[in-house]
């Protein structure tokens, strides 16, 4: 009987290790409400003049991601609004894959808050937009590495406006590169 309990305990530990391996092996944090496809078609209604910068920063990475402009009901959107709220930018996943366990999103909405960003530099605003695209490409906030990352809450937004090595590794993990 003791042997059986021991065997069950070992199976439990192995299964839990298997279940959590995807997240713990990496320094980035995988975000499962990112976009299903690494090619994001986006309707840029207003990106406070930094869409091109953010697009270039992501296109310059060694990943399969592409950000292209388009219109229609099935595309993602970027808007800038004067919001009485405490955040610079926000990523909202839309149209999730599954009814249960949700899965990734087919599209998203990225909102920039002009009330807090209007007086900031282009580098600062780009840092926010590149960060929000990071969510779209399956990166979660505050990676555990302590390394430089566009997903860090405490990053210097006047300096860091590009995806770092950790971020690129996270995107390549998410899209199977």
């Amino acid at each position: 009987m003791h042997r059986m309990i021991k065997t069950i305990c070992i199976i439990v530990v192995v299964c839990l290790l298997f279940a959590t391996s995807g997240a713990s092996a990496a320094q980035y944090i995988y975000y499962d409400s990112g976009l299903r496809s690494p090619i994001v078609v986006v309707n840029v209604i207003d990106a406070m003049g930094v869409f091109g910068i953010a697009q270039t920063k992501w296109h310059n990475t060694n990943t399969c991601v592409q950000i292209v402009q388009g219109t229609g009901n099935d595309v993602s959107t970027i808007v800038a609004e004067n919001l009485a709220s405490s955040w610079y930018g926000c990523y909202t996943p839309l149209s999730r894959e599954h009814l249960f366990f949700w899965g990734r999103a087919y599209k998203c909405k990225i909102t920039l808050n002009t009330q807090l960003l209007a007086n900031k530099s282009a580098t600062f605003r780009a840092s926010v937009l590149v960060h929000e695209f990071g969510h779209a490409f399956c990166l979660d906030d505050n990676p555990s590495s302590g390394n430089l990352s566009i997903m860090n809450y405490d990053r210097d937004r006047n300096y860091l406006s590009w995806p770092t090595t950790d971020d690129i590794a996270g995107v390549n993990y998410a899209y199977g590169e």
């Binding site: 298997f18 610079y88 990523y91």
Partner: peptide, 26 residues
């Protein structure tokens, strides 16, 4: 074994509920 494999599968494929991901000042 079935229960553990189910748990493992949930860990691999279950997603989080939809949430806002806002970038706040530091």
């Amino acid at each position: 074994v079935f229960l553990m494999l189910s748990l493992a599968a949930c860990g691999q494929f279950a997603g989080e509920q939809s949430m806002y991901h806002a970038d706040y000042p530091y």
